[in-house]
Structures are given as structure tokens and as C-alpha cells.
Design a protein around this nucleic acid. Structure first.
Lengths: 220, 220
DNA sequence: CTAATTTACATACGCCTCGTATATCAGAGG
DNA sequence: CCTCTGATATACGAGGCGTATGTAAATTAG
């Protein structure tokens, strides 16, 4: 018995989608995943993870929660996918910035500043910096390990080897700096005058970073 | 009509509480609030804010959600109260640490290290560092403004005036350092070997901080 | 000292959200 | 052509939260 109503099933929507595209199945699936990720990204970025209703944003993507559970397991799984996407974009942007600098050190500083600027974007701030850690735990344990951090740690490693900066554990320093930048972004974004605050933060960060330069340190 | 069942009301629990104590009303209220905050603090600290059921932890405190809504408005309000309590404790602990140091600079460094250690405690980490920002937004905009940050900013102000450290905006530097420490704590807490990681982080932090000392900087 | 009012809390109800179980259909492959 | 697997939709149940409402104790008024 039961489920009599299934006679009306989803005939309409399925037919519509059939008419629209005759792509191979794998493409349709990729498209579905992309649609879900995009819709979730928007919802998470504006309403926040907790207040984003799965029913709502799957519907906005022209789908239902059924598709979501099939592809991502649960809401957290979808958040992971969204964060992975954003993180990849961030990594790519930082890579470009670092590559355009004349020296390694300057590249590093430019990367830091670019990171702060990116972290000012509301979507990144909300999803990656606030909800991400709350829902998924410590970012340093995430699978991607934040492409950003790895890139910075590598730079620091080389700078240390070159003798440009004082000897420290590169990973430790990169995590400290990353945390500093992240917090700075939250501060800037919520400040009454973000522009001025940003200048103060960038200046302070440069001061802090320059303390690492060997040429700035007197033997002592 | 309706609400017929109210005849049985809460006679039992009320009578029990009446027998137990004949304190003035204000004390009873304070006790209720304290019980709720304590129960919530435990639940938030172990299960996390999102997974802590209001029905469950109010019941654990011998109360119902009615009391909670009356005193704190909603779940967020209770979280605010919990965080305020924890923040006050942290501030007091830091104050003591700083006061025991021979010089202002050493006090500042000691405070930083103590902060990292505190932030390793699971309850603080979960409630203040992860769920807090996700639910209540940027910590720098919280009412208490994090007693910790203010204290550090004051120290930096004085150190700058004394000429001990290079001139920067004290608030900016304190926020950067605060973010660095916070992130370091998350990293340490989730590292496979927290002890060793902690040493690395503290060493790196000291290196970073010492870069601010005027006596370490060569004129450049 | 009694009556009115306020305050502190408990209960009931409804909406919404999530997760799981089930149903259906479209393609892929034999 | 038939079967089987995979992609998606629907139905159902369990909780969680917020609000509206109820009650009794404490306080204040007269």
C-alpha cells in the first residue's frame, strides 16, 4: 500500500529537463552538483549556514533535498564542497599575486595583503572564516588544508633558507600570520570606517612582518 | 476553554523549591540565572551550540525553557551570557599573569603565552573561539570587547610611549596578535602532538613579538 | 491585613527543519 | 528488449525553537 500519490510524481519537471538538454548523463550530474553548490554558496553566504534552509535553496536550484542527500550526504557535506570551491579560488588568486612580485619577500607581503582583502568579502568571511570553523572544526585540519596556508608556508621556508628572515618554524609562523590576517579582516569588515581601519591593519601587519627580516634585526 | 491540564501544573517542583530555600526573591532569581548559565555553558562546551537542546539543558538545571526565555530572550541571549562569564574569568586570569612580571614587556609576553594556553581549553575554544563568532558575529564588536584585547592594547600603548617597541597603532597590533594567538590555539589543540606544537607556536610568537622591540631593530 | 499587580516560571501548540525510508523514472549494458 | 543501477523526488517521523497562554508566588497598594 501507501505512496499512492506517487502517480503524479515529478513528471513535469523531469520532462522539462529532458527537453532542455540531451547531454550525456555525466554532464547532467556535474551540472546538478554545480547547481547545488552554487545555490548553497549563495544561501550560506547571505543567510549563514544555520539559517539556510535546505528545502529553500535546493528549490531555488530547481531541485529537492533528495538530490542533495544523494550527492553530498548531508548539509555539512555540502558546506565542505562549497568551502573547497571557494578555497580553490582563493588559492588561485593568491598564486597570481605572488607571481607578479619582483622578489620573493615582496611576493610574500603582497600575498598577505591580498589575503586580507579577500577575507573582507562577505561571502568568504561568512562561509570560510566564521561558519566553516564552527561547523567543520579547526581549519588547519581540513582536507585542503587551506591552499593559502600551504603556499605561504612554502614561501617562508624558502625565505628562511635564503637567510632573508630569521630562523623559525615556517609552518608555525605562517599559521600565526594567517590567524592575524584573518582576525584583521573581521575587524576591518565590521569597523565603522573600513577604509581607514584597513590602512591601519595593513601598516601594523607590515611592521610585524618586517620584524622578521634579518637585515632589520640588530645582533642582540 | 483549553489548558484544562493546567490543574496539575507544576505544584510538585514549586513546592520542592519552596521547601529548600527561604531566600529573598532576588537571590532566587540570581540562582536561577546562574543555574541556566552553568547548564548552558556545559552543554555548549561539550555538544556545541547548535547541538545543545534547550529542552535538555534547562531540564538538567531543573527548569524549563520558560525560565530561559524569560531571563535571556532566546538561545543567543544565553550564549552571550555564557561568553560574558567566560570572558570575565579569562580577563581576571590574564590580569594576574601580567601583574606578576618584572617588566611591562615581560608581562605582555607572559600574557600572550597565557592566552594561548587558556585558548587550549576545550570549553573556551568551542564556545568563545568557534561558536561565538559564528553565532554572534565578529568578537571585536561584542559588548565586552574581549577584556583580553583591551588589556593587551593598553599594554602596547604604554610600551609604545616608553619607546620600547616601534611605533604602530596599538589597537591594530593587539588585534593582529590576538588573532595569531587564537589561531595558534586551534592549531595546537588539534595537532597530533599538542605539546611539541605548543612549543613551536610559542617560539614563533616570541620571535614575531621581539621583532617589535626597538632595541632589536637596526635603523633601516 | 487584604486586594491588586507584577514577576517568574511552566505548559501547550504550531511551524519548520532535518534525516531516512521509500518510490519512480531514465540510461547503460547485456 | 530486459534488467539493473543510479539520480532524483516524495512521504513520513522526530525534534527543535519560538510564541501564546496559564498559574502561583512575591511585592506593593490601600
Amino acid at each position: 500500500m501507501a505512496y499512492v500519490a506517487y502517480v503524479n510524481y515529478n513528471i513535469r519537471s523531469v520532462c522539462e529537463r529532458k527537453k532542455m538538454a540531451h547531454k550525456p548523463r555525466s554532464e547532467m550530474i556535474a551540472e546538478t552538483r554545480a547547481k547545488l553548490v552554487a545555490a548553497a554558496r549563495h544561501a550560506f553566504g547571505t543567510a549563514g549556514y544555520a539559517d539556510a534552509s535546505m528545502d529553500d535553496f535546493t528549490a531555488a536550484a530547481g531541485l529537492t533535498r533528495g538530490a542533495l542527500y544523494h550527492h553530498f550526504g548531508d548539509k555539512k557535506g555540502l558546506l565542505e564542497a562549497v568551502i573547497a570551491e571557494i578555497d580553490a579560488e582563493m588559492g588561485a588568486r593568491l598564486h597570481i599575486v605572488a607571481g607578479n612580485a619582483p622578489t620573493r619577500w615582496e611576493g610574500f607581503v603582497a600575498e598577505c595583503i591580498a589575503y586580507i582583502e579577500m577575507a573582507l568579502e562577505p561571502e568568504i568571511q561568512r562561509i570560510v572564516l566564521r561558519d566553516g570553523p564552527a561547523v567543520l572544526g579547526d581549519p588547519s585540519a581540513w582536507p585542503n588544508q587551506n591552499a593559502c596556508i600551504r603556499s605561504m608556508a612554502e614561501n617562508l621556508q624558502r625565505l628562511t633558507e635564503e637567510g632573508t628572515i630569521v630562523a623559525t618554524d615556517p609552518e608555525a609562523v605562517s599559521r600565526l600570520i594567517n590567524g592575524a590576517m584573518l582576525h584583521a579582516s573581521l575587524w576591518i569588515a565590521n569597523a565603522p570606517d573600513p577604509e581607514a581601519t584597513s590602512k591601519k591593519a595593513v601598516h601594523a601587519l607590515k611592521t610585524l612582518l618586517e620584524g622578521l627580516l634579518v637585515r632589520n634585526r640588530s645582533p642582540g
